[in-house]
Every structure is written in C-alpha cells, then in structure tokens.
Amino acid sequence: MGTEKIKIDSDLMVKVRQFAKLSGYSSPEEFIQHCLERELSSLEESGSEDEIKKKLKGLGYIG
C-alpha cells in the first residue's frame, strides 16, 4: 500500500494534532486516516446493511 501526500489547512492541523493526542491515536496521520475511513464507510454503506438493520428493527432481543 503506497502513500500519498495531501495539503491541510494549518489551523485545522493544529486541532487535528490536539485531538489525535487526546484520543490516544499514535499519530495525527492515523487519526486523519481513521476519520476519512469512517466517513467513506458511511457513504459507502451498502443497501444490504440498510436492509439488515431495517429487517431486524423491532426484534426486541437486540439493541
């Protein structure tokens, strides 16, 4: 897996560093990567996942 460089606004980067440290990430890069992954996965959330959630709703055994 290769890596790419991207530019980030430096004010934002200050905050990123702070939060990454506070939340226990090993590096700001890891934090950013995780945020992007999470965002992407929510965008990619497949129809089948929606379907599963919908189907199981109302089944009292799960929360």
């Binding site: 379907e51 919908k54 189907k55 199981l56 709703k57 109302g58 089944l59 009292g60 799960i62 929360g63």
Partner: peptide, 25 residues
C-alpha cells in the same frame, strides 16, 4: 409492510432524547 420486524411511528411535539430512528420505531 415496510419489510421489518415491526416499525411503529410516533408523532410528538416533545423533544425526546432519542434518535429519530430507534430500534423498532
């Protein structure tokens, strides 16, 4: 009819501390 185990609908003016999409409703 929506294909789930049962989703009720609840209409209220009360601001509830729950997600709009709670399990089953």
């Amino acid at each position: 009819l929506v294909g789930s185990y049962g989703i009720f609908n609840y209409y209220t003016t009360e601001l509830l501390e729950m997600n709009e999409d709670i399990g089953g409703g």
